[in-house]
Design a protein around this nucleic acid. Sequence first.
DNA 1: CATCCCATGTAAAAAGTTACATGATTGG
DNA 2: CCAATCATGTAACTTTTTACATGGGATG
Lengths: 178, 178
Amino acid sequence: MSLRYAVLGLIAELDGASGYDLLKMFEISLANVWPATQSQLYGELGKLADAGLIDAAAEGPRGRREYSITDAGRAELHRWLVEVEPKKPMRDETLLRVFLLGTVTPQEAQEYMRAQAARLDDALDDLAVLDETVDWDDDDLSRYGRLVIEYGRRSIAMRRDWFEWARTEMRTFDESVR
Amino acid sequence: MSLRYAVLGLIAELDGASGYDLLKMFEISLANVWPATQSQLYGELGKLADAGLIDAAAEGPRGRREYSITDAGRAELHRWLVEVEPKKPMRDETLLRVFLLGTVTPQEAQEYMRAQAARLDDALDDLAVLDETVDWDDDDLSRYGRLVIEYGRRSIAMRRDWFEWARTEMRTFDESVR
DNA sequence: CATCCCATGTAAAAAGTTACATGATTGG
DNA sequence: CCAATCATGTAACTTTTTACATGGGATG
């Protein structure tokens, strides 16, 4: 159900946005938070309009349709944000691989861990560049967006450190096997 | 496609496991890594058997069917682990909420952040208890499982710290608005 | 006037969730 | 013998992904 609130929330913050505008937001700002495809987005816009949570303006220039949140929509968004318990069915493919790393040779496992740490190091660099490139405004989206970027930075740094730590731990496994 | 390899990998490590045995593994060890329901699991076992990646033994005591990995299955698991690039379409509902926190009052936002930090503190305590309760064996699954637990611990600690940091950051937003 | 970007929509498939359904064996 | 646990299977639904399809408007 979160997609629904992601869309509703974006419309609340970006009044008068079109499906296309929202799609760009999903691609840029929400890419690492709550990705959504064009297909999902337009479908959800239809459902939100049917439910009376958003209003669709008449078609503009290229069939463009601008949306704005209704009072009912604002109330529903608010309810979700403050009342509904977040649930966390987090799936982590990288961790799954680590969990199964006992099925390959120690050399391959080491190499895997090393490559992951390196990949995360690169990601940290990219994030630093991004942070300097983007000119952060003072609107809500930018301010909260910056907090989310910092979250990403800490998350990646933590993962990198863990991969390096775990790699040395795994070396002690190999020794005990020998 | 990862579910397929989660199942295949578990069978590789726990030779002769039944669907039921695997389900317990998903509930206990993989709950926070790659959750799967009974429904998904039995379906996947059928597909893996059809694809020749696992062998199903004849029915035992209570209709129990024991699975073991085939050479083709082991090769396919290996290929996935070392050759296929992991992809990370991570969705984070909590982060999505933070992203949209500009739509509620500063007081409500503060309370949300505070509650999240507290929740993560509790989770850290639970994890410490779990770590002391479980008696870790020396098999692959236990050793790698411990690495994954440590990942969880670091991840939760990082999140807690971030929530506390972000909460104070958000207070400066409110001041500039006033 | 062609190419890029704006702009929307739908169909089909894969993945994941929830619920229902059934029966055997073991331990107290 | 009764309850808990072992054990499997399927149906219906929701969510997510991938692909196809179409056309208008701006810019060089």
